[in-house]
Amino acid sequence: MEPILQIRHLQKTYERGREHVRALSGVSFDVAEGEFVSIVGRSGCGKSTLLNIIGGLDVPSSGSVVVRGRNLAAMSRSELAGHRRSTVGMVFQSFNLIPSRTAVENVALPLAFSGVPRKNRPPKAARLLTGMGLKSRLNHVPSEMSGGEAQRVAVARALVNDPVLLLADEPTGNLDSRTAGEILDLLKALNRERGLTVVMVSHDEASARRVSHRLVRLLDGRIQAQVRLRRPA
C-alpha cells in the first residue's frame, strides 16, 4: 500500500543573521496509513522543523514531502493553506487556543475557513468536545480550563475538519505526568479506534515508546535510527 507520507532528502536551512543554520540535512522516511510514528531526539535536532514542514507551516529548502500523493514542496501558498485546512490537523505544546474564545468557538474556527455553514459549526464542535469528555467545558474560555482540558480542546480542533494526518508537536510538554499520560492515551485511542495516522514529536522517548508503532530518532538534522516497536493493526 502506498504510504500516506513520503519524505525524501529533506533539507532545511535557516538564515539567522549572517549564519546559515542547517535544521535538516537529508531526511528520508515513510509513514503508512494508520501508523503512529514518534520523532524523538534532543532539542535542536530539527524535529519541530520537520513537523512544521509536514504540516505546511514551513517550506523545505530542498527535497520532497508527499502527502497522499501531493508534493508540498511544489504547492503554492494558498494550496498550503488548503493542506493545513483539510489534510492535516496540528496540536502544539502550548495548546495555541485563542484566549478570548470559548472551547466551542476555538474548535469551530477551522470550519469557518473551510466553508462549513455557520449554523452547522457549533453542533459539530460540541459533539467532538463531548466525545472527549469536555461536555461541561463547552462554553469556557481557555483560562478557565486545566492544561489537560485545554490540550483536549486543541486535539478536538485539530480533528474538526476530518484530517488524514494528525501532527502533534510535544503535546505533553506543558502537562504534568498524569495528564500527559491521559493525552497520549487519547492520541493512541484515536489512532487505534479511528485508524487516524499520527506523527508525534517528543523529547520523552519513554512515553513515546509506550504509544508508538515506530520511533524515528533524529540527531543534528539526520535520522540516527528507526526503531520498530510493534506492528500497526
Binding site: A81, G82, S86, N96, P110, F113, N161
Partner: peptide
C-alpha cells in the same frame, strides 16, 4: 501575531 499564527495553522489563507 499569535492569533494570526493560529488562524493560519488551522487553515486560514492569506486572503482570509
Amino acid at each position: 501575531r499569535r492569533e494570526i499564527g493560529i488562524m493560519k495553522a488551522v487553515g486560514a489563507g492569506e486572503g482570509d
